[in-house]
């Protein structure tokens, strides 16, 4: 039993070494606070300063978008991804523009997921950022 415990602890300890190495290797990509890496996020003020150079994408459900949204924002959420993405690519997308995606708050995952799909599935070359604080953050700075 002691040997079993010793072996288990040794394996558990050994696994820490490469894990620490990987953490160091990816230190600029790993975010310990949120699902989205810090480098992929943008503050509301900076995003606002982009002005017409940015396309704003609202990743919240349509009902929230209809209630209110960032002026000029486009609805593109995962619920209607297959329908809204081609529409967006045909009508609003431009390779030169930056893209800012937001959802309801800091803790929601929708914006991060939409941003990732735009990068990985739609293969958009644009600079894509997730709005820090989401819609709630936008409202705070609007006041």
């Amino acid at each position: 039993m002691r040997s079993l415990l010793r072996q288990s602890l040794l394996l558990l300890g050994l696994a820490c070494l490469p894990a620490a190495g990987q953490a160091l290797y990816f230190h600029d990509k790993v975010s310990w606070q949120s699902r989205i890496a810090e480098a992929d996020m943008i503050e509301v003020d900076l995003a606002r300063s982009w002005g017409v150079e940015a396309i704003w994408i609202d990743a919240r459900p349509a009902v929230d978008f209809d209630r209110d949204h960032v002026p000029g924002a486009i609805l593109l959420n995962e619920d209607r991804w297959n329908e809204l993405l081609p529409q967006f690519l045909q009508e609003q997308w431009s390779p030169e523009k930056k893209i800012v995606v937001y959802c309801s708050s800091e803790s929601c995952n929708l914006a991060g997921d939409v941003a990732r799909r735009l990068r990985d599935e739609a293969k958009l070359p644009n600079q894509i950022r997730v709005l820090k604080g989401g819609w709630e953050g936008w409202l705070k700075t609007r006041k």
């Binding site: 394996l11 558990l12 050994l14 696994a15 820490c16 070494l17 490469p18 894990a19 990987q22 953490a23 790993v30 975010s31 310990w32 606070q33 949120s34 699902r35």
Partner: peptide, 19 residues
Amino acid sequence: PWTLSVWLALYLPWLEILC
């Protein structure tokens, strides 16, 4: 919690390989 998920994401694959 998210922090623990990150920690596991870094640690778990190596534990699986070693085992």
